[in-house]
Amino acid sequence: MSEKIWNVYLSGEIHSDWREQIEQGVAERGLPVKLSSPVCVHEDSDNCGVAIFGEEENSFWMDHKGANLNAIRTRTLMREADLAIVRFGEKYKQWNAAFDAGFAAALGTPYITLHPKEHDHALKEVDGAAAAMARDPKQVVQALAYIIRGEMP
Rank of each mutant, 00 (worst) to 15 (best):
F88Y: 12
E3C: 02
K65F: 04
D46N: 13
M133W: 02
R19P: 05
N70D: 12
N7P: 01
I85C: 09
D46R: 14
D136T: 06
G150Y: 10
W95V: 07
V141D: 05
N7K: 13
A101I: 11
E118N: 11
M133L: 04
A122M: 05
D136A: 14
G30K: 15
G150P: 09
S45P: 00
G108E: 12
W95E: 05
K65V: 00
V126T: 15
F60I: 08
L10A: 07
H15D: 09
M152G: 08
G49Q: 00
E23G: 13
A98Q: 05
L69D: 06
A104H: 05
E151W: 07
I112L: 08
I147D: 07
C40A: 07
R29K: 13
A67T: 09
R79P: 00
I5K: 04
S16I: 04
E13H: 11
E23N: 06
L69T: 09
D82A: 07
R29W: 02
G54C: 06
L31P: 13
L77Y: 15
L69W: 12
R73T: 08
A97S: 01
E20N: 15
M133I: 11
Q142H: 15
E13P: 03
S16A: 08
H64N: 13
E80M: 15
D44A: 11
K65H: 01
G12Q: 11
D44E: 05
L114A: 04
V141H: 08
P116G: 05
V8R: 14
P116C: 06
H64S: 05
N58I: 03
W95A: 03
V141T: 12
M152N: 14
D127E: 15
D136F: 08
E13R: 03
R19M: 07
A81I: 06
G102S: 03
K117C: 02
A143T: 13
V41A: 14
A105R: 11
W18S: 05
Q24V: 02
L107A: 03
T76E: 12
P137E: 07
H119A: 12
D63C: 09
V41M: 13
K124M: 07
V140F: 06
W61M: 15
D100E: 15
A143M: 15
R87L: 03
G49D: 00
R87D: 03
S59C: 01
Q139T: 10
Y9H: 11
